[in-house]
Design a protein around this nucleic acid. Structure first.
Lengths: 203, 203
DNA sequence: TGTTTATTTCGAAACTCTTCGAATCAGTTT
DNA sequence: AAACTGATTCGAAGAGTTTCGAAATAAACA
């Protein structure tokens, strides 16, 4: 595409925009250590319920907060995993650093072995250490992450973010890439993994 | 405390707001590795000069970019020091000294632990509170400051001052000490960080 | 089941931000 | 000093955000 940066800058700016209002910063601070209900947050912020709800929705869309229904109230919590990266990490642009870790000989017949190797390389202790730069490796990692999604079930965005965020702080990228490949679909804010298997050996 | 948070949330949100527009994210990316003139940035962003100037002014106000007049042009450069903290660092609220949750401690060598401890002692909110008196601690702090200098690139004195001044008002001492150790060199008024020896861990 | 309670959506007013052309300003060059 | 070049400020139009009250929704309780 003519401007791969544009989309990414757009995307990164989106995250920062979600953080770019005092009320939302305060909401995150107040929900950092403990869950709090919307009602409580209303009182603390001295804003109308509708306004607080609006801000919470923005934080939720950005994957910065999680909600849980308990009794009559809905409790909100900052989604801490999303806050690990530094500003520089988020801003960092995919360098043209000519990745010369050339994949070893054509072992295409040993696809499973290749997959295992890639997964071993990029996962440590069940966490995704880096999102692979190479397309093919990213495919492997992303298809692995799909395990957590039942085909056909609906997932709200916040849950998608939470599931992916458990592996890597930049769940945005992971989510976007899954959508790009059609391995997740998005309609009216809810996500779904389509029924057919994604990357199984096609011929 | 009626509102120590209020002011801070306002202030933090200000910073995020400055980052919350695609054009500004792109500007920072484009000026991350090299200085660029306003004219050049205009061309790259395909926006009117007035608009680019406006965005640059916002970034400047937030302390995210530095400018330097050179010849006919004014060169802008991302002020990298400002991007070191994580989102959590920025969001973190002055805790009521209940150090309950220790941050997940990765396995560090004894030297790394020492470095981390020194840095924690002398940095607050990304700023250098005091220049350590002990030589060994000063080494740690100075080597940390080097992160902001790309090996091999030329830095005019004004930029060196700006980069170091972002951490501590007495950039003069910092600069002198870096020169003394040979971690920066000076020739004909321009500064340079020597190319790294092989096997130097850079984070 | 209907009632209660908390949250979200809607619609509208006030406000802020983005964008540009034109005018102004600030350095360089001749 | 005058002319040139690039950057900033000004003013205005348009787009987007924030805020709230009122109405709709959803979820728990009796």
């Amino acid at each position: 595409m003519s401007r791969p940066h544009d989309t990414t800058s757009q995307h990164v700016a989106e995250l920062f925009k979600a953080l770019g209002h005092p009320a939302r910063v305060l909401l995150l601070r107040l929900t950092w250590d403990q869950g709090r209900s919307g009602e409580e947050l209303c009182g603390l912020l001295k804003l109308a319920a509708a306004t607080v709800s609006h801000h919470l929705a923005l934080l939720d869309t950005a994957g910065l907060i999680t909600a849980e229904q308990r009794g009559h109230h809905r409790f909100y919590r900052a989604h801490r995993a999303a806050f690990a990266p530094s500003l520089a990490d988020l801003l960092a642009v995919p360098r043209p650093e000519t990745e010369t870790t050339a994949p070893p000989a054509p072992i295409l017949s040993e696809e499973e072995r290749y997959r295992a190797k890639v997964l071993r390389t990029f996962f440590k202790d069940g966490l995704l250490t880096t999102i692979p730069a190479q397309r093919k490796k990213r495919d492997v990692v992303l298809s692995y992450l799909l395990r957590d999604f039942e085909p056909g079930r609906e997932y709200p965005e916040s849950e998608v973010n939470a599931l992916l965020g458990a592996y890597h702080p930049d769940f945005f990228t992971l989510r976007r890439e899954l959508i790009m490949r059609g391995w997740l679909t998005r309609e009216r804010g809810v996500y779904r993994r389509p029924e057919p298997e994604p990357a199984t050996g096609v011929a």
